[in-house]
């Protein structure tokens, strides 16, 4: 079922796309993560924080995909 509003309006479910901004902001604001502690299995925070955002960003993309897949 494909439904769509007029070309001037935005389908309400497309607002889910804002979720795509979350990993971008979280990984570009350096002061949030340029720390040694807490460490994880000996890995400084900077490194495991950024690596943690890999699966988290995948989750964000997946949510947006499932919420909007009939619209793309």
């Amino acid at each position: 079922m494909t439904t769509r509003q007029s070309s001037s309006g935005i389908h309400p479910r497309l607002w889910w796309r804002l979720l795509l901004l979350v990993p971008i902001i979280a990984t570009l604001w350096v002061p949030w993560y340029n720390h040694l502690n807490p460490t994880f299995i000996g890995i400084p925070f900077l490194y495991w924080y950024l690596l943690m955002w890999v699966p988290l960003s995948a989750v964000c993309s997946a949510v947006v995909y499932f919420k909007t897949r009939d619209l793309v």
């Binding site: 796309r17 795509l20 901004l21 990993p23 971008i24 990984t27 570009l28 340029n34 900077l46 490194y47 950024l50 690596l51 955002w53 890999v54 960003s57 964000c60 993309s61 947006v64 995909y65 793309v72």
Partner: peptide, 23 residues
Amino acid sequence: GALGFFAVPYTIIAYPIVFAVLP
């Protein structure tokens, strides 16, 4: 050192951008 790790945020944020734009 740590500067080289920029490649991780780079490849994290590339996909949301592609998702929004390239279709």
